[in-house]
């Protein structure tokens, strides 16, 4: 796999897009978090809002860049026909996909870590003036929310990579992933029955995955935080498996 990794890394770093997308991820995530934190209040003098979750809301927007990064990595190659060259040069196709997945994970973890750190640092500067304590890494739930958000971003990127490998067409791939992320929460709201709502919530990669950001009201959540993060992980595993199979079986 070293050869494949090296080749894919060279491909990635010699194209300017990836860096810009990561920058977009960090900026959008942090700016959203800071903007929302700036508007935080203490209703009826009770500072009970989940400021950590609010400060990390930007992840919901920032993940769009992770999706773009992943889709470009594979659909871009199909679009230009580069994929034929890639697979001719590296015939072990699943290894190629694994190399891409590894690189993507590394990149989104790095970008996500910066984005989450920036969001929480921004929140830390704003919160004391608004009656809340700043988020502290020493606090277990806060640390879990931060780490979980970074992992969540990487998992979303992997779901995108798997689905894009299956679908090839970049527009269709991006649309499908974003639909999966953003329409699932709306579908949950559509269901009239609360039990069905909770069931669908548990299946939705964004709903369940972002449970990891909650630091208050954990008892009301349909899933506990880490189990919630397992949901996008399962989606990512399934998508990569499907992608790997498609890549092996299909003509390039």
């Amino acid at each position: 796999m070293r050869r494949e990794l090296h080749a894919e890394w060279t491909k990635l770093r010699t194209e300017p897009g990836a860096g810009r997308l990561l920058l977009g991820l960090v900026t959008l995530t942090a700016v959203t978090g800071v903007a929302l934190t700036a508007g935080v209040t203490c209703p009826w003098d009770r500072c009970t809002q989940d400021t950590v979750k609010l400060g990390l809301t930007g992840v919901q927007l920032g993940q769009a860049f992770a999706v773009m990064l992943a889709v470009r990595m594979i659909s871009g190659e199909y679009g230009t026909g580069l994929i034929r060259l890639t697979l001719a040069a590296m015939p072990r196709r699943t290894t190629v996909l694994a190399a891409k997945a590894t690189l993507l994970t590394g990149l989104t973890l790095a970008g996500g870590a910066v984005a989450v750190a920036a969001s929480l640092l921004g929140a830390g500067l704003l919160l004391p003036a608004r009656g809340y304590p700043p988020p502290s890494p020493a606090d277990g739930p806060t640390l879990r929310a931060a780490l979980g958000s970074v992992l969540y971003l990487a998992l979303i990127a992997l779901i995108s990579l798997g689905l894009a490998t299956v679908l090839r067409e970049p527009a269709a791939a991006a649309g499908t992933v974003l639909g999966l992320l953003y329409l699932f929460p709306l579908a949950v709201l559509l269901l009239p029955d609360p039990d069905w709502q909770r069931l669908l919530w548990r299946l939705s990669p964004m709903n369940a995955g972002l449970a990891v950001q909650a630091t208050t009201g954990l008892d009301d959540l349909p899933l506990d935080p880490w189990t919630g993060l397992a949901v996008p992980a399962a989606w990512a595993a399934a998508a990569l498996l499907a992608g790997g199979l498609a890549l092996r079986r299909r003509d390039a």
């Binding site: 927007l61 769009a64 999706v67 067409e169 970049p170 991006a174 974003l178 639909g179 953003y182």
Partner: peptide
């Protein structure tokens, strides 16, 4: 001139 970018941007601006 990029499908993925256009789809993501449009969805992020309209549906998100």
């Amino acid at each position: 001139r990029r499908a993925a970018g256009a789809v993501v941007a449009a969805v992020a601006l309209v549906v998100l």
